[in-house]
């Protein structure tokens, strides 16, 4: 797997030479600062609404960055035929898949660090506190969630013809999981058989991205989560990431490139 790291570094370079990240960061910062400039009842110590808004923007922005950046990786390589000189080197297709994944994931990680620094500064100006453990746990788990999303986009880019359709589908699926994933068991219990079994099976099969969402805990200053739960969630993300990467590799390994 020696080729993985060089491929990943080229992906990171590409993503940071494009403008997407900067646009989304500036947009997030602008909206947050604009909302922060509104004072409610002449009280400038109100922080939670601003934290919630900032985190929501961070979540949306990083999801957009992760999905759009990943969805175009392999299709662009094939469309622009840069995959040909790449695979003419001693590089396996598995290394290309993992390298692309790693590059996109690392780029998302760098973006997350920048976003969370901004969040920390905004939060500290109001609350005068740096709950670093909470920030670390939230950032890490969000990054783990993005690993699943990036792997899902990569697999999707080999299934769906156009990067735009892949990006839209992955974005919708990720949003749907985040919104209703946790409640599918409740929904299943209200259904008759065989729908109940099907929905329950779906509930257990799909990657529960909402597990990685610590926004409410962060906004409302709850204590950090238990470290065993943090570690278990990390393993859960790792497992699903590999599942999607395996799907991507199986789909890519024998596919004609031209």
């Amino acid at each position: 797997m020696n080729a993985v790291w060089p491929i990943a570094t080229v992906v990171v370079k590409e993503l940071y030479r494009r403008k997407d990240f900067y646009v989304l960061f500036v947009l997030t910062a602008l909206i947050t600062l604009l909302m922060g400039s509104v004072t409610f009842f002449h009280d400038d110590r109100i922080a939670r609404y601003l934290k919630e808004l900032c985190l929501l923007l961070i979540w949306v922005s990083t999801l957009v960055i992760a999905i759009t950046a990943t969805a175009r990786q392999l299709p662009a390589e094939r469309e622009q035929r840069t995959i040909l000189p790449l695979l003419a080197k001693p590089v396996s297709r598995g290394e290309v898949v993992v390298g692309k994944f790693l590059g996109c994931w690392l780029a998302c990680g760098v973006a997350l660090v920048v976003f969370y620094l901004f969040f920390g500064v905004v939060s500290a100006t109001r609350e005068h506190a740096w709950p670093l453990t909470n920030y670390f746990q939230a950032l890490w788990l969000q990054w783990c969630m993005l690993a699943i999303v990036v792997a899902m986009s990569l697999a999707g880019s080999l299934v769906f013809a156009a990067p735009s359709s892949n990006a839209t589908i992955v974005f919708l699926v990720a949003s749907a999981i985040l919104l209703v994933g946790r409640h599918l068991n409740t929904v299943a219990l209200t259904l008759p058989e065989p729908a109940q079994t099907l929905v329950y099976a779906l509930y257990f099969a799909l990657p529960h991205l909402e597990l990685f969402d610590l926004r409410d805990l962060l906004v409302h200053d709850w204590a950090p989560i238990a470290w065993w739960a943090w570690a278990a969630a990390t393993l859960y993300a790792l497992a699903y990431t590999w599942v999607f990467l395996l799907v991507a590799w199986l789909s890519f390994r024998r596919r004609p490139l031209v």
Binding site: W5, E14, P85, V91
Partner: peptide, 29 residues
């Protein structure tokens, strides 16, 4: 392909890299 060099008919390279960066990337591969 470890001892192989390949020149495609048309140019297919990462245009956001410089020549030096591209060659360094391939050298690492």
């Amino acid at each position: 392909r470890q001892r192989l060099g390949y020149l495609p008919e048309l140019t297919y390279y990462y245009k956001f890299l410089s020549a030096e960066e591209l060659l360094r990337f391939y050298a690492r591969l």
